[in-house]
Design a protein around this nucleic acid. Structure first.
Lengths: 218, 218
DNA sequence: ATCCTCGACGATCAGAATCCGCATTCCATG
DNA sequence: CATGGAATGCGGATTCTGATCGTCGAGGAT
């Protein structure tokens, strides 16, 4: 999953990035509203963390423009503590959740997870396909009840597929959602990791649709 | 389906081509207005993506000339962000849709699909003929409810026929819309694929009109 | 009018060429 | 040492080509 952070304050931005990366997300960050708006329009994110107090273009404006342009990705808004009006305005402008600063990283991660889950239309934090279960809270994967050890990258790939069960996911889409901005687009890593996942979880789990991409059975 | 890209900026042009090709379109590209105009007049496209800011001949001029010459293919105009006047002028000159740069590839594909669908007079993204259903979004085909596996080329051919249900489609037309510029025009591939499609979906679906081409029942 | 013949066009098949995905190995990094 | 990413060769699926076969229909002969 790939996240965009729009936050001008360098310390907080760095801290956020670290938290998210160690939770297994691919992270891009923007330091002002303009850059944030641009990235949000251009790149494919599974969620955005948006600070409302920004230089150049205000956070609310950015959010509003995204929504008007038809971008539907979940947005988690960061507000100053007890800034009730900000919160209301944010929800009005189309925020999906909000969090008052300061906050604990666990809470951020939890909310983010919930956001992404809701966006993909899943009710529980446990995703199931065939004999495979993936718990997004603990990051554990089991096959027929037996725990399976996954590496970070394998997990990300599998998780994205399971979030989009039934849909045909192109290689490009996978690359866009698993890696951040600068990544060599013609490389066969995706194939390699698909192979590795199949080796661990069985060959039937992931179906290849030749020329289009991969798909997980509903 | 075959698309013409008229875009002078090499990076964007390449990126567009890649996106479209991986979505299964045949792509030609022109790097300035003159070339674009020529191709648009000469070749048969199912849609055109036209950047307004072009060297040599301006995009609007090109569009205007096409329309005056009676070319009716759907045109998706790319405008600079918030360039309201461009948008208005574009729509005046006969653009069918517009998209502000920058944009996400997914959105481009979605709009293109909508454009082509509208042009062929279909309301939904699902095309039906006899017991055969084709969903242009997911790229799946079913016969009497049963999913049928189609190869990329078979799918393209079928899709074109279904978009032009009832009309008699000549072999030349099929070649022009399924392959891009450089393709050997005297080859019997079309016949081969027609045979294969009939084998998968039943012989009655596609009628041969001797000397003219093929046709799908309304 | 009916039948026959011939030519043109379309259908089908088999094999060649090509493309695409897969596995494996290797190297870099931390 | 474990992991992630790059390079390579293999193998099967897909596409294309060329050859052959079948069929339709025009037009002439009866």
């Amino acid at each position: 999953m790939r996240i965009l952070i729009v936050e001008d304050e360098p310390t907080l931005a760095r801290q956020l990035r670290q938290t998210l990366e160690s939770a297994g997300y691919a992270v891009d960050s923007a330091h002002d509203g303009e850059e944030g708006q641009y990235l949000g329009e251009t790149e494919a994110y599974d969620a955005v963390i948006l600070d409302l107090g920004l230089p150049e273009v205000d956070g609310l404006t950015v959010l509003d423009r995204w929504r008007k342009a038809g971008h539907k990705m979940p947005v988690l808004v960061l507000t100053a503590r007890d800034s009730w009006s900000d919160k209301v305005a944010g929800l009005d402008a189309g925020a999906d959740d909000y969090l008052a600063k300061p906050f604990q990283s666990e809470e951020l991660i939890a909310r983010l997870r919930a956001l992404i889950r809701r966006a993909s239309g899943n009710a529980s934090s446990e995703l199931v396909a065939g004999g495979v279960r993936l718990d997004t809270r603990s990051g554990r994967v089991t096959l027929d009840g037996e725990p399976v050890k996954m590496t970070a990258q394998e997990y990300k790939l599998l998780s994205y597929l399971m979030h989009h069960k039934g849909k045909v996911v192109s290689r490009t889409e996978l690359i866009e959602h698993i890696y951040d901005q600068d990544f060599d687009r013609d490389s066969n890593t995706i194939e390699v990791f698909i192979t590795r996942i199949r080796k661990k979880l069985g060959a039937d789990l992931i179906t290849t649709i030749r020329g289009l991409g991969y798909s997980l059975q509903g």
